[in-house]
């Protein structure tokens, strides 16, 4: 390595270390003995690593329930979002039908409106529908994913029209074309969209906090926020809880990072 390369790469390594430090410390402190982390200067590694904090979370805090809730809700949100947004994105890109241009303009305007604006009326609406304090109530906002529609539409625009015309000449119905010809070519963007929704739903806090009042239905972030208000002094247990909450999505991102970053770019260029 040339000296210049060493200098630049060394600088990047330092920045990366500082960026990763909070996450590394979280993992390290989650294995410490009770009370060990609360010392000055702060210990960086556990003196005798223990799994007791994790055991306590599952035994006394019932974190298994919240983990289960988060898994079920995020998986359902992902499936529903795909079912709702993919056909719409394809139709807006490739099918000529009256009203299409109007719909697109309305969606462009709507994507600029932050979701929190309608949060209180949405709560009342779901209360009226009897969906407050249920999985369904948490899932509802994920059905209305405008960003996903645009992401799919963007990707569909690149599909050659001849492919569709050829299938039509063979007598395939419009839905058969979507299922057997379009969907396979969309595979990469479907992974991207699924990843976005899963991570977004898993990390979401304000909406589940509002819509869920029954503790047994809490997702991990809602439960963790409640723990950290009640048991702030149990630092090591809170770190283990943070690990359980964030490690699944962090690993998922690391494994599928190419899909995530590609999608982020095509999405932001669009905006």
């Amino acid at each position: 390595m040339k000296p210049r390369e060493m200098l630049v790469t060394g600088l990047a390594a330092c920045v990366a270390l500082f960026t990763a430090l909070p996450l590394l410390w979280m993992v390290s402190a989650s294995f410490m003995q009770p009370g060990e982390a609360a010392h000055a200067p702060p210990p960086l590694l556990p003196s005798s690593p223990t799994l007791a904090n994790y055991a306590q979370l599952f035994r006394n805090y019932g974190i298994g329930t919240y983990l289960f809730n988060s898994l079920v809700i995020s998986t359902l949100a992902t499936l529903l979002a795909l079912i709702f947004t993919v056909p719409a994105g394809y139709a807006l890109a490739k099918l000529r039908f009256s009203g299409r241009v109007t719909i697109q303009w309305m969606l462009v305007v709507a994507i600029l409106v932050p979701g929190q604006i309608g949060m209180l009326p949405l709560f009342l609406e779901l209360k009226f529908l009897g969906l407050v304090n249920s999985y369904a109530g948490v899932l509802v906002p994920w059905l209305a994913g405008i960003f996903g529609i645009f992401l799919v539409r963007q990707y569909c625009l690149a599909i050659p029209q001849e492919m569709i015309e050829a299938a039509r000449l063979d007598g395939a119905s419009e839905f058969a074309i979507l299922r057997h010809i379009i969907l396979p070519t969309l595979a990469p963007i479907l992974v991207t969209l699924a990843l976005f929704v899963f991570l977004g739903c898993w990390n979401d806090f304000l909406w589940p906090l509002i819509i869920l009042s029954d503790q047994d239905l809490y997702t991990l972030p809602v439960a963790l926020a409640a723990f950290s208000r009640e048991h702030a002094e149990d630092l090591e247990v809170m770190m283990a809880g943070s690990v359980i909450t964030t490690l699944p999505v962090l690993l998922l991102f690391l494994v599928l990072q190419r899909f995530y970053l590609d999608g982020l770019l095509s999405g932001s260029v669009k905006q």
């Binding site: 806090f205 972030p221 963790l224 809170m238 909450t245």
Partner: peptide
């Protein structure tokens, strides 16, 4: 997860 890292 925002809540988890905020706790950290």
């Amino acid at each position: 997860t925002l809540v988890a890292t905020a706790v950290v």
